[in-house]
Amino acid sequence: MKIVKYVLLCVFILSVVTGCGSSANDKNKIALSSSPEYTTYVQDRANVLDGKTKEYLEKNSHELYQKQHVQITVFTIKSLNGADIKEYSNKLFRQLGIGDKDTNKGILILVAADDKKARIEVGYGLEGSLNDGKVGEILREKMFPSFKKKDYNQGIVNGYNALIEAINKEK
């Protein structure tokens, strides 16, 4: 009986000594509320998209993922609250885990409506077909003209289609 006690004591001491508590990495997380309305492919948190657009994105993104394992997520927010959009979109991209982990074929289209800022974050696996130059061109030529007129539906759909076209061209 005594031995058991000793052993338990030793185990306890050892676990205290070696217990290097791993620090949670929560400081890098963006606080996001959940809602049944938000899906893997569309999260319209700024309420700028209509039902038709959401349905279109949902259907095509699902198909794209089924066929080519490419995941495109459209994410709208009202404001970045002063955060840098590049850092924000990268954090969000990682946090949502867009694209399969091994292939990294994910795209995040982020629109901060009130800040009038937008960014497309591309995973490693797609950088070949969608380099920064190409992505910049899509933003400038396909999306921003509509965004300026507050037509987020048209802008998102135009940019979205251009992205898919670029991915298919590369194959």
């Binding site: 590049k86 990268n90 920064d132 130059g133 910049g136 061109e137």
Partner: peptide, 20 residues
């Protein structure tokens, strides 16, 4: 110039990746 704008985007993108 279109080509130049794209290059600037690439440079900015690379710098962003570098900082990440």
């Amino acid at each position: 110039d279109k080509q130049f704008t794209r290059l600037m985007d690439e440079l900015a993108g690379t710098e962003n990746r570098l900082s990440i």
